[in-house]
Lab assay of single mutants.
Amino acid sequence: TETRTFTDEREARRFEQEARDNGKDVQVRESNGKFEVRVK
């Protein structure tokens, strides 16, 4: 599991989409204006 934290939602979404395109299981959590993207 890899976790990346972004402050920019667009960057978080781009990373999320890229991971999904690669067939990964992705979860995005938002807290305090930060976006935590977990990739399995």
Rank of each mutant, 00 (worst) to 15 (best):
F6E: 02
K40T: 15
F6R: 00
S31Q: 11
R10A: 14
E36L: 09
E36I: 15
S31K: 13
D25I: 13
T7Y: 12
V26I: 04
V39T: 08
E9G: 05
A12L: 04
V28F: 15
G33A: 02
G33F: 01
A12W: 03
E9Q: 07
E18C: 13
V37K: 00
D8M: 02
T7Q: 08
F6L: 00
V37Y: 00
R38T: 15
E30S: 08
V37R: 00
F15L: 03
E9R: 05
F6S: 01
Q17V: 06
N32L: 06
V26R: 00
R38K: 11
V37H: 01
F35E: 01
R13L: 09
R38A: 12
R14H: 08
R29T: 14
Q27F: 14
Q27G: 04
A19H: 05
E16P: 00
F6K: 00
D21H: 09
R14V: 10
R4Y: 15
T5H: 10
R20H: 05
N22D: 10
F6N: 00
R29N: 10
A12G: 01
F35W: 15
D25Q: 11
Q17D: 06
R20W: 05
Q27D: 11
D25M: 10
R10V: 12
D8Q: 04
Q17S: 08
V26A: 06
E11D: 10
R38F: 14
V28Q: 02
E11A: 09
N22W: 08
F6Q: 02
V37D: 02
K40N: 14
K34M: 14
E9I: 10
R14P: 01
Q27T: 14
E36M: 08
Q17W: 06
E2T: 11
Q17I: 06
R4N: 05
R29F: 15
E30N: 07
R20S: 04
A12T: 01
E18L: 11
A19F: 04
F15E: 02
K24D: 06
G23F: 05
E9M: 07
K40H: 13
F15A: 05
R14A: 14
E36R: 03
K40Q: 13
Q27R: 08
R29P: 00
R29Y: 15
N32I: 03
E16V: 13
T1W: 15
S31H: 14
Q17E: 07
K24F: 15
D8R: 02
R38N: 10
K40W: 15
G33Y: 01
K34R: 12
R13T: 05
T5L: 13
T7P: 05
E36P: 01
F15R: 02
E2M: 11
G33H: 04
R14S: 08
F6I: 00
V28M: 10
F35R: 01
R4M: 10
R14T: 08
